[in-house]
């Protein structure tokens, strides 16, 4: 993969505070960021979080050739609201707004609308690999000549989702997290961190994942010792890298697009080689290499 440089980034995330089974994001005053009242008044928390974060990252950058978003579960609150209204109103006289806003590509679409961006606009919704898929697409866009590519992720906590995930046993290791991070990627930038490689897998057992990590590092002409910091959401990485690992999900909680938070952390660090190793619930495994 051709390296892509992160020329700007933004984040709305937890400050590490645990509230019961969740780690809610610390949210900004959305009115300050999303100034279009007509669009804002219909937005759920999920959409506001994503749109605000995306707008922060866009800043004054022009020539946006792609907007690529990722989410594990999409606009849950609007989805729940609409299902509830179907039951309560017995399929009659339903408000269309939650249905419209529940579409997975709402944040990407609203960013296009607010900024008049007519370019490529796609949304990935593949469990613990949603953000990684978006990054791969973004890197391909840059390789194909896109000037600036906005890529980001959003997921939200709701009461229903917390209760269902607790019952499924998904919150045993970490509280449920949420948040949004966006990144502006470009082919060239001085002194900016670069995403150099991304790899995704499904259903690996620990020994297979360990082998995958080794060959991933080698493929990038590095030795395991060359990795300065490992942002980890996987016990496999902790065993391999020991003291060099930082458990990023202790800071943001567990959710499908938590690796977007890890990538944002990586941009804040001053390390030559940062490896993000993640495992989403034994289902999905992913690797992201960030270099300076």
């Amino acid at each position: 993969m051709q390296p892509v440089f992160i020329i700007n980034s933004s984040s709305i995330a937890s400050d590490g505070t645990v509230a019961g089974l969740t780690m809610p994001a610390v949210e900004p005053d959305y009115k300050e960021i999303i100034t279009d009242a007509t669009l804002r008044r219909r937005m759920s928390r999920f959409v506001k979080m994503g749109v605000a974060c995306g707008l922060e990252c866009l800043g004054q950058t022009s020539d946006i050739d792609a907007v690529i978003t990722a989410t594990g579960l999409g606009c849950l609150s609007d989805t729940e609201k609409f299902i509830e209204s179907i039951v309560v109103n017995n399929e009659r006289l339903l408000n269309p707004t939650p249905f419209i806003q529940s579409t997975f590509n709402t944040v990407g679409g609203q960013l296009a609308l607010l900024k008049g961006i007519h370019s490529y606009n796609v949304t990935y919704v593949h469990r613990g690999l949603s953000f990684e898929s978006a990054l791969i697409d973004a890197a391909l866009q840059v390789a194909d000549g896109a000037r600036n590519v906005l890529v980001g992720a959003i997921d939200e906590i709701t009461v229903a989702s917390t209760d269902a995930q607790r019952r499924m046993g998904l919150l045993k290791n970490y509280p449920l997290g949420e948040g949004s991070q966006f990144f502006m990627l470009a082919a060239k930038a001085d002194a900016a961190p670069a995403v150099c490689d991304v790899e995704t897998h499904t259903g690996l057992i620990n020994s297979e994942f360990a082998a995958v990590i080794e060959s991933f590092v080698q493929r990038n002409n590095l030795r395991l010792d060359d990795i300065d910091c490992v942002l980890s959401g996987s016990s496999v990485a902790e065993k391999m890298f020991g003291d060099k690992t930082v458990d990023f999900k202790k800071q943001c909680g567990e959710y499908q697009t938590a690796t977007a938070f890890a990538l944002w952390k990586a941009t804040q660090m001053n390390c030559a080689n940062v490896l993000i190793v993640n495992q989403y619930q034994q289902i999905n495994q992913s690797l992201i290499l960030v270099r300076r």
Binding site: G74, T103, F104, G108, R127, L129, T200
Partner: peptide, 25 residues
């Protein structure tokens, strides 16, 4: 979640390579 249906299809077909899901309405 949308990814679940894709993983069922991949399993059924024995696909172990790159797998992802897109949702743009």
């Amino acid at each position: 979640d949308c990814g679940a249906s894709t993983e069922f299809i991949a399993n059924q077909l024995g696909i172990t390579g790159f797998t992802t899901t897109i949702s743009t309405a």
